[in-house]
C-alpha cells in the first residue's frame, strides 16, 4: 500500500472522532474568551500543548489563580494516561527513526491512539507502514483542533453564554464511541474482561471523585486496568484447565 493511502486510512478511521472533537475545541476557545484570556493564549495552548482535556483543567486552574507548579503538575497527572498508550505502541515504533518517534509522541492523543491502534490488530496496517496511518490521523486531528479553537475564540466573542451550552457532551459521546467496540464480541477476544474493566473503573471514578488534582481519574483508571487484567488471566486459566 502506498504511503498516502495509509495516511488516508488513518484519517478515515479518525473521522467520527474528529466530528465529535469539533464542539469540544469550540468550547475551549469560547471558554478562554469568556473568561478574559487573550485569543493568542487559547490558540498557542491548542497548537503547542495539544491536549484536549488537560487544556480544560488548566483553564479552570488559571481562572482560580492557581500557582504555576499546580497547573503544570496537574497537567502532568491528567496526561499520565498517555504513557500507557506509548507503552502499548513501543513495539510498533521502536524500529523508526527519531524524527518519526518525535511526531508520533507529540500527536499521541486519546483519539488517534483509539483510531489507529485497532488497525494493527486487524492487520489493516503493519509495523513496517503503520506510522503513516498514524501521521494521517495526527494531522487531521491537529488541523481540526486548531480550526475549532479559532472558531471558538471568534464565536465566544460574538455569542456570549456559549460556554453554558454543554458542548463538552460531544467529548462524552466520542469517548463512548471509542469504548463500545471493546464490549462487542469478535472472534479475536472475549468481552467479559473488558466489561469488568469498564465497571470497576467507572465505580472507582465515582468513589474517588473527591480526590484533589484529578488524582481520582488516575487511580480509577489503574483499578480498571488491574481488574480487567485479572479477569482475563482468570479466564485464560479456566480455558487451560478445561482443555487439560
Amino acid at each position: 500500500m502506498k504511503n498516502h493511502e495509509l495516511m488516508k486510512k488513518g484519517m478515515v478511521a479518525s473521522l467520527p472522532m474528529i466530528v465529535g472533537g469539533i464542539p469540544f475545541g469550540i468550547l475551549f476557545g469560547s471558554l478562554a474568551m469568556s473568561n478574559g484570556l487573550s485569543p493568542w493564549f487559547a490558540i498557542a495552548m491548542s497548537s503547542i500543548v495539544f491536549a484536549g482535556s488537560a487544556q480544560f483543567v488548566a483553564l479552570g486552574l488559571i481562572l482560580m489563580d492557581a500557582p504555576l507548579w499546580v497547573i503544570i503538575s496537574t497537567t502532568f497527572i491528567v496526561n499520565l494516561r498517555h504513557i500507557l498508550y506509548a507503552a502499548d505502541l513501543i513495539k510498533f515504533v521502536k524500529h523508526l527513526p527519531m524524527k518519526w518517534r518525535l511526531i508520533i509522541g507529540f500527536g499521541l492523543v486519546d483519539e488517534s491512539y483509539a483510531a489507529v491502534r485497532p488497525l494493527y490488530g486487524t492487520n489493516q496496517i503493519s509495523t513496517e507502514n503503520g506510522h503513516y496511518a498514524f501521521l494521517g490521523s495526527f494531522l487531521s486531528f491537529y488541523l481540526m483542533w486548531q480550526a475549532a479553537t479559532i472558531l471558538g475564540v471568534v464565536a465566544g466573542e460574538l455569542i456570549p453564554g456559549m460556554s453554558q451550552w454543554g458542548l463538552e457532551f460531544a467529548m462524552v459521546a466520542t469517548f463512548i464511541g471509542i469504548i463500545t467496540p471493546y464490549l462487542q464480541k469478535t472472534h479475536l477476544k472475549s468481552v467479559a474482561p473488558y466489561w469488568v474493566a469498564l465497571i470497576s473503573a467507572s465505580v472507582a471514578s465515582l468513589v474517588l471523585n473527591g480526590l484533589p488534582n484529578n488524582l481520582g481519574l488516575l487511580f480509577a483508571a489503574l483499578v480498571g486496568v488491574l481488574m480487567g487484567y485479572l479477569a482475563s488471566s482468570l479466564k485464560a486459566n479456566q480455558l487451560v484447565s478445561e482443555e487439560g
Partner: peptide, 29 residues
C-alpha cells in the same frame, strides 16, 4: 524505544488502558 523490553504481563494489561481511562474521565461527568 529500541532498548525498552516490555514484560508479557504488562503487554496483557495495556489492552485495558483505553477503556479504563476513558470511562474514568466521562463517568463522573
Amino acid at each position: 524505544a529500541n532498548r525498552v523490553v516490555m514484560p508479557g504481563w504488562i503487554e496483557g494489561a495495556l489492552g485495558f488502558v483505553p477503556i479504563s481511562v476513558l470511562s474514568a474521565i466521562i463517568v463522573p461527568m
